[in-house]
């Protein structure tokens, strides 16, 4: 089963012919070549594939592509502004050591965006809960939490 789906992707109206068993992640990476969104586990455990759908963070590896019809999707690429300027959250991760191997980073940053959009001044516990769906094996999270704290100061 195939269908033409239309949605907003990083602010642009897009459409794509998609098979019914495809997940949003596959459409983003394979159809739109937005490879910033990573597949870490494919089962909603690691959060590397986190994107925003209508502003809410979701694991795109478990999000049926058909469900995105009419919705607005933001990926990590959508945060970078004109002239390759990083979003304040991205900047904070760069400045404060929130990045090591970087594989979890796009998902981590998208979860942070969802968190700060809803709660611009989170406590450390709220930060940790906010990124609890994103696994990182390199940093031990300490500098990630610090990055988010700093990002919140500018939010």
């Amino acid at each position: 089963m195939k269908k033409l789906i239309r949605f907003t992707l990083n602010g642009h109206e897009v459409s794509a012919e998609v098979e019914s068993h495809r997940m949003l992640l596959e459409v983003l990476r394979n159809t739109f070549h937005l490879t910033g969104t990573k597949e870490g586990c494919g089962q909603g455990e690691c959060g590397a594939c986190t994107v925003l759908v209508d502003g809410l963070s979701v694991d795109s590896c478990l999000y049926p592509a058909f469900e995105v019809e009419g919705k607005s999707v933001t990926t990590i690429e959508g945060l970078v502004e004109e002239g390759s300027r990083l979003h304040p959250i991205q900047e904070a991760f760069v400045e404060h050591g929130g990045i090591q191997c970087g594989f979890c980073t796009p998902g981590m940053i998208m979860s942070t965006k969802a968190l700060l959009d809803e709660n611009p001044h989170p406590t450390d516990d709220e930060i940790k809960r906010g990124i609890s769906g994103n696994l990182c094996r390199c940093t031990g999270y300490v500098q990630i939490v610090e990055s988010i704290r700093k990002a919140a100061e500018k939010y």
């Binding site: 990476r29 490879t35 990573k38 900047e91 991760f93 760069v94 990045i99």
Partner: peptide
């Protein structure tokens, strides 16, 4: 100081084998 590869990784531009 920030690491040199951080910006590309933050932007989702770094190229892993998967990409």
């Amino acid at each position: 100081v920030p690491r040199p590869d951080a910006s590309d990784k933050a932007a989702g531009k770094a190229l892993y084998i998967h990409d």
